[in-house]
Amino acid sequence: MPDQPVLGPRALGRATLARQLLLSRAELGAVPAVELLVGMQAQAPYAPYFGLWTRLRDFRTEHLADALNERRLLRIGLMRSTVHLVTPHDSRALRPWVQPALDRELDTAFRQATEGLDRATVAAAGRELLAAEALTTKELGERLHKLWPNRDPRALTYVVRNLVPLVQVPPRAIWGVGGTTRYATADSWAGPGPDPDALPTPETLVLRYLAAFGPASVQDVQTWAGLVRLRPLLERLRPQLRTFRTEGGRELFDLPDAPRPDPDTPAPVRFLPEYDNLLASHADRTRVISDEDRRLVMTRNGMRPTFMVDGAVRGAWKLTRQRSTATLLVDPFRPLNRAERSAVSAEAARLLAFAEPDADHDVRLSTSTPTSTGSAP
């Protein structure tokens, strides 16, 4: 094998930030940006609004809200069995590929509760119910329980959720409106998809991942997708890719002409929402966050919103509102110098202007030392 250039964490970080639209805000609309990013993790309903604001120039909340209401974007369980914001086309392309992860989750969490159950029959019943009207999980469980009275309603709903592509329909995730989570089938909500033979190949999906998250190792691709045994797929792609090595010797794959900026390229302060895919889509995430700081970001219930300084996570943030005052609490994981504090405060003020335009604004930078809130997965 020919010598492979070595890319350190800073070089990898700049490459990924460039592709994630985090080195400079892009002149893109919400829909093409979500497509370029191969979806955005979205189990926190408002997280993609902040994720798009931090990546796009002149983004406004109605840009995403309108796309959801008009069914140009939708929220559906995909990679890692988590809710993602994607285009209808990408939902149809990605769901069959990541289905093994959804099957594995169902087997792990509900193997005993579904033992002896004809899952395909349950899925068909759920599909019929949800094609007729959008239902909450409780409503779906109650109706399925009437058909299978000896089964746990929650297990029945998970069979449908994991075997049938389901969309969380508005007003859920509509900025300033919100509402109870209701599900419809993807086909009834966004229309039937193309013939399965017309869908993109797994190779095409991995190339799109590399365009949005690369350079990446086999383990990185598997982490993003929630799948295993993907090395043969990368080997098939090898002739059309460039390869590199990490400082630890792990092989990385990348598109030949993808951006790989100089490691010293300036990286502005950026505020990321909870569950941002930047922090969830690599096995080795030290390109953008240290292992120590990951333990401060990950909680027992998920992932805290974070902010980045010079291309790396440096702390967390929280937005609160009491009456007419909106407060952004900024929690650095270690002291910031004067220039960094100024840049963080300025970006925090811009975030408040975006999220709470009708409120009085208060930015507060903590000086306390944070403690771990959970174990990083």
Rank of each mutant, 00 (worst) to 15 (best):
L12H: 01
R14V: 15
T16H: 00
L22R: 00
R25E: 11
L28R: 11
A42P: 10
Y46K: 10
Y49P: 09
R57I: 09
H63P: 05
R71P: 03
R72F: 04
R80S: 09
R95P: 03
E105F: 07
A109L: 15
D118S: 11
T121C: 06
G126I: 12
L130M: 11
L135E: 03
L140H: 04
L144A: 06
N162D: 12
L166E: 03
Q168S: 13
V177C: 04
T180H: 02
T180M: 05
T185Y: 05
W189C: 04
P200M: 09
T201N: 00
L205P: 00
D220F: 00
D220M: 08
D220W: 05
Q222N: 06
Q240I: 13
R242W: 08
T243Q: 07
F244L: 01
G248R: 11
R250C: 05
R250P: 04
L252H: 03
L255V: 09
P261N: 06
P268Q: 07
P273W: 04
T286G: 06
T286N: 02
M303F: 14
K318H: 15
T320F: 04
T327Q: 01
D331C: 09
P335V: 07
L336M: 03
E347H: 07
E347M: 12
D358G: 13
D360E: 14
H361A: 14
P370Y: 03
T371K: 08
